[in-house]
Structure formats: structure tokens, C-alpha cells
């Protein structure tokens, strides 16, 4: 009998790559690169610089980097103040703290005034075994309700690098989920990221998976497995949760026999809910099967064990689609 999987220590890779090549700290690398041509970009963190991959920027531009200590309300307030002076702050912490702890500051200090603050949120969904205190399983639902906030859930290293540049150019507040450490490369080098645009990564008539974040990799893997069984699975990747690409989602879902959503987030209030709302509003009469986390707090444990237990793996997608046929 093999030893049970262990809970990872803080800072170890948690993206659980599916055998693809990976890039180390794509967000921090992209931000440090941008910093060379954009003197208006400043970095902040709340005592999680090492753990949110912003250290390459900190090392390159120490004068433009501020660590406010364990104080997430102040992290966002200071970022808002910096933005008022014309700078473009990137503030990093874990998703749980950026949302639950600092919500009023994101809403009132940043979004209400459409300030140019970029919040980069580590440990999205179920990517840590540290339990409910660290797992941002409901962050998309919380942040979706903030008017004017752009929300990004990138799927791989390529997209994180592209999205970092795109949100730096975007005027307005942004909440971006972070995949940290060794992040897999899933998308082709030719992939172009555009805020607000969903992209069809794979065509197929039988089942259409609408996915976001790290679940897109699993959706593609599931499509490969199902293709061998004669099931044609299409994949629509939706990296921008807000503003939501209503047109692309409605049209994609209209063209497949079954719709399945896949998100690293609770199945209420996130991508699944958005797709259901979109189809209802658009008059597309399709039943939607949702893959995501249950509406409950999740215990401590190893990430692969927990992801399997709570159903956000490739195997879970394959099983759900199998049950549809």
C-alpha cells in the first residue's frame, strides 16, 4: 500500500498539472517584464509576496514595491490611493482575504470610483489543502456582484502572461485569479487573450463543455478521452467571468446536444450560474450539468485527494458526461 498523499507545505506547487510542460511564476515574470516599460506599475502585497509569485517584480523594482503586512483591508485601500495618483497598482494576496476580508474596500474604495486597481488572488477554488480558511471556493460569486469589476480566471501560464499585460492596459478595477508556482502550458502559443472574450478551443457536436480557470485543461483532457469512445466534445474556454461573453456562450450552447459547465468554484454563483442565466435569458432551452465544488466547507488534505473527492478532476468530467449518454 502506498503512503497517503500529504498536505503540501505553503508555497509548493498546487496547480496539479496534467503532465504538460510548465512555466515558473508566469504572473511575476510577466509583471516584471511589463515594469520595464511601464514606470506607472507598482506592486503590493500583504505578507504573501513569495506565495503569490510577485517576487520577480519586487526584485526588479524594489522602490515600486510595498509590503503592507498582514492587513488586507489596508492593502486594497493603499492600492486605491496609489491609483488616485495615476499609478497602476497590482495588489496580491490569497483570494479568501481579497474577497471575504477586504470586500468593502474592493467595492467602495476601488470599484465605485472605477479605480485602476488590479487584485491578484492566489489559491483560487480548491488549490490548497489548508481547508476553508485558505480555499477561495466562492470568490467568483462574491466578486461578480460588484459593479464594474472585471473578473478573470485564467487557465494556464500562457494566459496568465497575456492577461497580466491586458489588465495592465485596461482602465478600471480587476480581480484576477492566480495560478502560482509551476503553472502548466495548456494553450497554443498562437492563443490570444482578450478581456471579455470566450474562445472555442475544440469543436464537437455531442457535448459542449463551458469551462474556466484550471478546469479548461481538464475539459480538454476529458474531451480527448471521450473522443476515443466516439463522443464528440466541444470546449468553450471562458477566462473572463465579468463582463461575461453572453453571445459566445449562448451560441456555443445552442450548437451542442448537451451542455456541461466546469469550474474550480462552488456550483452556485459562478460560471455554472452564469451559463444558466445566459441560456435562460437568451431563450436557449438546454439542460445544464454543472461540474464544480459543492456548497459546503472543505476539509484539510492533499490537493489531488480533495479535488477527486469533490469532483473537479478530468475523471469527474468524463463520468458526468458518461452519465448523460
Amino acid at each position: 500500500m502506498s503512503a497517503p498523499a500529504r498536505t503540501l507545505a505553503m508555497g509548493q506547487d498546487e496547480a496539479v498539472a496534467g503532465g504538460r510542460p510548465s512555466v515558473e511564476a508566469p504572473f511575476g515574470r510577466a509583471l516584471a517584464k511589463l515594469g520595464q516599460t511601464r514606470p506607472d506599475i507598482v506592486g503590493l502585497t500583504a505578507d504573501l509576496g513569495k506565495y503569490t509569485d510577485i517576487h520577480p517584480f519586487r526584485d526588479a523594482f524594489p522602490d515600486r514595491f510595498f509590503n503592507v503586512g498582514m492587513a488586507e483591508q489596508n492593502l486594497v485601500a493603499v492600492a486605491a490611493g496609489l491609483a488616485r495618483t495615476g499609478l497602476v497598482p497590482f495588489a496580491t494576496t490569497y483570494g479568501v482575504f481579497a474577497t471575504r476580508r477586504a470586500f468593502d474596500f474592493v467595492a467602495i474604495a476601488c470599484a465605485h470610483s472605477n479605480l485602476n486597481v488590479k487584485i491578484i488572488a492566489g489559491l483560487p477554488g480548491l488549490t490548497t489543502g489548508y481547508g476553508g480558511t485558505h480555499q477561495a471556493i466562492e470568490d467568483l460569486a462574491l466578486m461578480r456582484m460588484i459593479p464594474g469589476l472585471t473578473i478573470i480566471d485564467p487557465c494556464d501560464a500562457t494566459e496568465i502572461e497575456a492577461a497580466t499585460a491586458a489588465i495592465a492596459d485596461h482602465q478600471g478595477p480587476v480581480y484576477m485569479r492566480l495560478l502560482r508556482g509551476g503553472v502548466p502550458v495548456v494553450l497554443d502559443p498562437s492563443y490570444t487573450f482578450e478581456i471579455g472574450k470566450a474562445v472555442t478551443l475544440r469543436d464537437g457536436k455531442d457535448v459542449g463543455i463551458v469551462s474556466t480557470g484550471l478546469m479548461t485543461e481538464r475539459a480538454l483532457d476529458a474531451a480527448d478521452i471521450l473522443a476515443k469512445r466516439g463522443v464528440a466534445v466541444a470546449v468553450l474556454h471562458v477566462p473572463t467571468i465579468k463582463p461575461f461573453d453572453v453571445e459566445a456562450v449562448a451560441s456555443f450552447c445552442a450548437g451542442v446536444d448537451h451542455v456541461l459547465t466546469a469550474e474550480n468554484h462552488v456550483v452556485v454563483g459562478g460560471l455554472g450560474s452564469l451559463v444558466v442565466e445566459t441560456l435562460f435569458d437568451s431563450g436557449v432551452g438546454k439542460k445544464v450539468t454543472r461540474v464544480g465544488l459543492p456548497d459546503r466547507y472543505i476539509e484539510c488534505g492533499s490537493v489531488p485527494t480533495l479535488q477527486a473527492r469533490y469532483g473537479i478532476t478530468t475523471e469527474a468530467i468524463v463520468a458526468k458526461i458518461g452519465a448523460l449518454q
Binding site: 489596508n74 486594497v76 485601500a77 488616485r84 495618483t85 474604495a109
Partner: peptide
């Protein structure tokens, strides 16, 4: 200069503005 009223917001935003102004040598 800011949306006041959600008490506890002003000082942190003032810190950010003071940092930003200093960084830009104002």
C-alpha cells in the same frame, strides 16, 4: 478626493495617495 462614509476607509487611501505622490517626486 474619495468616497467617504464607509468609516475606516480614509486613512488607508490617504496612505496610498501619500506613497504615490512621493514615488512621483511630488
Amino acid at each position: 478626493e474619495l468616497i467617504g462614509g464607509s468609516l475606516g476607509h480614509g486613512l488607508g487611501q490617504a496612505v496610498g495617495q501619500a506613497l504615490g505622490l512621493r514615488l512621483q517626486k511630488s
